[in-house]
Design a protein around this nucleic acid. Structure first.
Lengths: 99, 99
DNA sequence: TGCATATATGAGCATATACTCATATTATGA
DNA sequence: TCATAATATGAGTATATGCTCATATATGCA
């Protein structure tokens, strides 16, 4: 099941994935998006964050393909795009709240 | 299942847990320890890291109770201490190697 | 075209982090 | 007690990161 030696690429992908989940702001954003889609400003308002900060973090998450978006006029609605990673987050939250 | 709002402490615990898993060196160390116990120098030799670096990272992981150790003379044998977090790591590795 | 709204982006800054080097601590055995 | 082996720790440094502020881009509409 688990490998004796981890190659460079696997190591990079895994560390980047967890890095995405290691920041409280990104966790809060992903925790919102796992329920339903949100616009950038809705995320900022809901979580009391600046528009710029949210946009920067969304770009980060989009680069890792953890979120996606659809356009409606000038508004972009973001939603989750990696069920597996979202599952890792949910497990960790479950674990943290049960201890 | 998932909470609407994440309280400060949950957010902190979850982010710290993923931060532990977000560094390639720590991933390599944990990947070793999930198989069997290793001494500090064995880890350093196996992974080609300095003794100091390994010791610093082990302290980090020990503070989060992700690893534990037993003493045998002057040698400390480290092993995993959080099955759940190890499971998160294994899942991520599995996922990364299957894409 | 011109203006308003929504979002993206770049620069700058303060903090966090992971490493190395040197040294301290701890336990063992002669 | 002294020397050695294994590990821990502190200081210093280079890089990464997450934020803010200002500005750019893009879409819709009059």
């Amino acid at each position: 099941m688990s490998k004796q030696h981890l190659d460079e690429e696997t190591l990079f992908v895994v560390s980047q994935t967890f890095k995405a989940l290691s920041d409280p702001t990104r966790i809060r954003i992903l925790n919102l998006l796992c329920e339903e889609e949100y616009s950038v400003n809705d995320i900022a308002d809901t979580l009391n964050l600046s528009q710029s900060s949210v946009s920067h973090q969304l770009r980060f998450l989009k680069n890792l393909r953890l979120v996606k978006f659809r356009r409606e006029g000038t508004t972009l609605y973001y939603s989750e795009d990696d069920h597996h990673v979202m599952n890792l987050l949910k497990q960790a939250i479950e674990h943290a709240t049960h201890t």
